[in-house]
């Protein structure tokens, strides 16, 4: 089976702070993987390294065998943990932009999903509610036929209904040969959609296991087990 994301001894330090500490990780295609850890455990750093918004201090990360480059960016669909789109842009501008820059952008798929949200194509982002904005960002991200989806905290700070919408959008839109990496600290909400769980603690991977196996062996939900591992 193809590995879409491989980290070898991947480390990143900011000044004297070690955000990622010799991480070894292999993610296979066709899996939805939870990147789970409390705030500051290195989740965002790992995702930024994979999308080449950061360069490793040590070690390497590979996307489908390649070091991060413009070519890997073409097959990675990245959802940052903030509003990253220019807020003056209207839906129609955004669709045009994604079509312009990403050869794998499926505009029909995006239009179908946007249609069910009942958003006017002439509304600029800045006039949308926070929840709608996040949905639009997710729709754009999931409308690409990428090999690797990197979703950084896609469900943080949205109401439960929007959360359901977001998770259902993820499971019904990712390509079967793709890997989806979802970083979050809200484990109970995502664990039903996960194949595998990766626990990050102070920049180290402390667990990488299939969710079924984890429930089988511990008799606990991922959420319960997480609380045990990370209890203060």
């Amino acid at each position: 089976m193809m590995e879409t994301l491989v980290c070898n001894e991947l480390s990143k330090t900011y000044g004297s702070v070690r955000a990622l500490d010799h991480v070894d990780l292999k993610l296979e295609e066709g899996k939805i993987v939870g990147l789970l850890g409390p705030n500051g455990s290195g989740k965002t750093t790992l995702i930024k390294l994979a999308s080449r918004l950061l360069v490793p201090t040590e070690g390497e990360v590979r996307i489908c065998g390649e070091l991060p480059s413009p070519a890997t960016k073409a097959i990675v669909s990245y959802l940052p943990d903030r509003n990253y789109l220019p807020d003056w842009m209207k839906i129609k501008d955004l669709l045009e932009m994604y079509q312009d820059f990403y050869g794998d952008f499926d505009v029909q798929r995006a239009q179908e999903m946007l249609g069910s949200l009942n958003i006017d194509y002439d509304t600029p982002l800045k006039n949308m509610s926070k929840g709608t904005k996040e949905k639009v960002q997710l729709i754009l991200t999931m409308s690409r036929h990428a090999k690797l989806y990197l979703l950084d905290e896609p469900i943080a700070g949205v109401d439960p209904a929007a959360r359901d919408y977001i998770l259902k959008t993820i499971i019904s839109n990712y390509d079967e040969t793709a890997t989806v990496l979802i970083s979050t600290h809200l484990i109970a909400d995502v664990e039903n959609v996960l194949d595998e769980a990766v626990f990050l603690k102070e920049g180290k991977v402390v667990l990488h296991q299939s969710v079924d196996e984890l429930r089988d062996t511990t008799g606990k939900s991922v959420d319960e087990y997480f609380r045990e591992v990370f209890k203060c």
């Binding site: 999308s51 080449r52 918004l53 413009p70 070519a71 960016k73 073409a74 990675v76 990245y78 940052p80 903030r82 509003n83 990253y84 789109l85 220019p86 820059f101 990403y102």
Partner: peptide, 13 residues
Amino acid sequence: KNEGYLSFALPVS
């Protein structure tokens, strides 16, 4: 700034 997240994720050098 924030828009950099968009720019640097584009398949562009």
